[in-house]
Design a protein around this nucleic acid. Structure first.
Length: 571
RNA sequence: UGGGGCGUGGCCAAGUGGUAAGGCAACGGACUUUGAAUCCGUGUAUCGCACGUUCGAAUCGUGCCGCCCCAGCCA
């Protein structure tokens, strides 16, 4: 697929795409586009990675190019197979096409050594015997230049011999390293003779014990990109200062040279996105694992019920720039609601049930009401829902002494039971503690389906579930994990862990769901009308239904009420 | 005090010399068998600040201020 210059111009929607379009038009890379996503398999992917993926893979897709999924597995001490599988799974879930070929940096180790020897022969690299501590001291500081290592001027022959012996396993860890010979006085610390290889007597998750020297990121990354003929190597702003080094290695080697371009990482309100902190949440058991629905990990969001389309739509909307910014989590939630509103089937479920007895309704009668699966999308079909004399409604849908503008059930009021009947309040029954046990109503038999026979206006419409047919379920209600917009903002001596929301998980037992819900499969996300979206948990069974609240519906009534309690200040 | 990057309404973000897109949020209203969705409407944005160049600057120049990143044998 070859794009015309006009088509390329149309794709130049942000600074990276503009650069890619220009390079393609100029023929710099033979009008070819190839990107890559290079995670290190040392943790699970999170929403920030979804942004990177959206840029990397999205550009390849839009420019008719190719996209490589490549594991940057150059550090055996931190990496595990478990993470490889998890990451592949997440990338697939988001829907990105990586051609079903998975690349591994470790597959290039042999070629990297050949190139390292080339650099040694050119006098561009040397084996340094300084200890880690000494290397740090020789490096200088931000404002002082570094000093040359006393081993910097070894002969090519000696360097080659030493490097080969490093590889052969003759030295213990930390005995020596291979370094690039650049400039110890460079104002860019990355250029002060960076380490290329360190000795690690560790077995690698894919290479086993074949290696005892492992390449450092700066040395390895450009080579990986070069081998894969990547055209544009996109990474986060943190690597901006590394680009001169990326270019230096490729130039010295005289090999195919991709273009590195950096963009800002994603930050979001009420969430933390650093691997270290996410790991702390898991290991400190502040959440129940990487896939806890409160986690910003892709596996967590999947369990929560967030559709992958929503995550990608979110990434499309936040844009790409080089400014550090904090995106409002409400934007993500908006994308989730938008997707779910369009696609989620509607059902009725009562989270906090209170029984309603319709005195006027025949005792043993059951009517199966025909109901739309999605009122705005008739194409999604219909189902039947049983109605009977005793039903459950939401406890908060009845008030003995309601405030103004409350148009749910209350003394003297008539409401509509969605798709069933109009009912009128009669009386209530309380237990000794004063809790409402039953609400008694009468129905208008001429209102079957919920239509008022005389056209009278009935404002309130409630969801309900027939008591005799109700399915019991446990529903987990999730709220944001942190109470502060910026979780890092902690008092003296405190950390982000002090900003954890102690009410981020509320388990609700004894919820009552309409029987059709039994057919839902793990992962399915349904709208419980008037309440929110709920996803079937992977642990859910026919005996114990388990739902995770994905997200609430917008709740204008709740907003009105909270405003009534705390009036907004007027200036 | 070194180097790199960034500063456009509450939050993102277009715009690259011709007189400030769009989305989210917020706030009104219409409609409504989801107080949802949908629809309509609402913002005097000192374009970080100050000088300067120009007929004209968010866009160019100079100076200043603020924020972020870099001193791993991590990526």
């Amino acid at each position: 697929m070859t794009l015309s210059d006009e088509e390329l111009d149309a794709l130049a929607t942000d600074f990276i795409r503009t650069a890619v379009a220009e390079d393609t038009k100029s023929g710099r890379f033979d009008r070819r586009v190839r990107t890559r996503f290079p995670p290190e398999p040392n943790g699970y992917l999170h929403i920030g990675h979804a942004k990177a993926l959206n840029i990397d893979a999205g550009i390849a897709r839009d420019f008719g190019g190719k996209f490589n999924l490549r594991f940057d597995d150059t550090n055996p001490v931190k990496e595990e197979e478990e993470y490889v599988d998890g990451i592949v799974n997440d990338v697939r879930w988001l829907g990105w096409d990586f051609g079903n070929e998975i690349f591994f940096a470790s597959d290039y180790f042999e070629q990297m050594v050949v190139w390292a020897e080339q650099l040694i022969e050119q006098g561009d690299a040397y084996v340094d015997d300084l200890s880690p501590q000494e290397i740090r001291e020789y490096r200088g500081t931000l404002v002082e230049p570094g000093e040359n290592s006393p081993y910097r001027d070894r002969s090519v022959g000696e360097n080659l011999d030493l490097f080969r012996r490093m590889r052969a396993g003759e030295f213990p860890e930390e005995a020596c390293v291979l370094r690039a010979k650049i400039d110890m006085a460079s104002p860019n610390l990355n250029m002060r003779d960076p380490v290329m290889y360190r000795i690690l007597h560790q077995s690698h998750h894919r290479q086993g014990d074949q290696w005892c020297i492992y390449p450092m990121y700066d040395w390895a990354h450009g080579l990986e990109d070069s081998i894969e003929r990547v055209t544009h190597s996109l990474c986060d702003l943190g690597y901006r200062d590394h680009r001169p080094l990326y270019d230096w290695f490729l130039d010295r080697l005289g090999i195919y040279h991709p273009q590195q371009i950096e963009f800002a990482r994603l930050f979001m309100t009420y969430t933390v996105l650093s691997k270290r902190k996410l790991l702390q949440l898991v290991e400190g058991e502040h959440v129940q694992g990487w896939d806890d629905p409160r986690m910003p990990t892709l596996t967590g969001m999947r369990r929560r019920g967030y559709p992958p389309e929503a995550i990608n739509a979110f990434c499309d909307r936040i844009g790409v720039s080089t400014a550090n910014s904090v995106v409002d989590v409400a934007l993500l939630e908006h994308a989730v609601r938008e997707q779910l509103n369009e696609h989620a089937q509607r059902v009725m479920g009562v989270l906090d049930p209170v029984k309603v007895v319709i005195d006027s309704y025949p005792e043993d009668q059951v009517e199966w009401m025909e109901v739309d699966n999605h009122p705005q999308r008739p194409g999604l079909g219909k189902r039947t829902v049983p109605f009977s004399r005793e039903i459950y409604i939401e406890r908060e849908d009845f008030m003995e002494d309601p405030p103004r503008k409350y148009y749910r059930l209350a003394p003297g009021k008539e409401v509509r039971l969605m798709n069933a009947y109009l009912v009128q309040y009669k009386t209530i029954v309380k237990d000794e503690e004063g809790n409402i046990v039953e609400i008694h109503c009468t129905h208008d038999p001429n209102s079957r389906g919920g239509e008022a026979p005389d056209g009278r206006r009935v404002r309130g419409t409630l969801h309900w579930v027939s008591a005799a047919h109700a399915l019991d379920a446990e529903v987990r209600l999730y709220d944001r994990l942190f109470i502060k917009e910026n979780p890092e903002e902690a008092a003296e001596g405190e950390t982000f862990l002090n900003n954890l929301n102690s009410n981020s998980l509320e388990v609700q037992q004894g919820c009552k769901l309409e029987p059709s819900v039994a057919e839902a499969q793990p992962g399915d996300c349904l709208q419980f009308m008037r309440v929110g979206y709920f996803a079937v948990d992977p642990d859910s069974t026919a005996e114990q239904l388990l739902f995770n609240r994905t997200i609430q519906l917008r709740d204008t009534w709740a907003k009105i009420q909270s405003q009534a309690q705390t009036p907004r200040k007027k200036g």
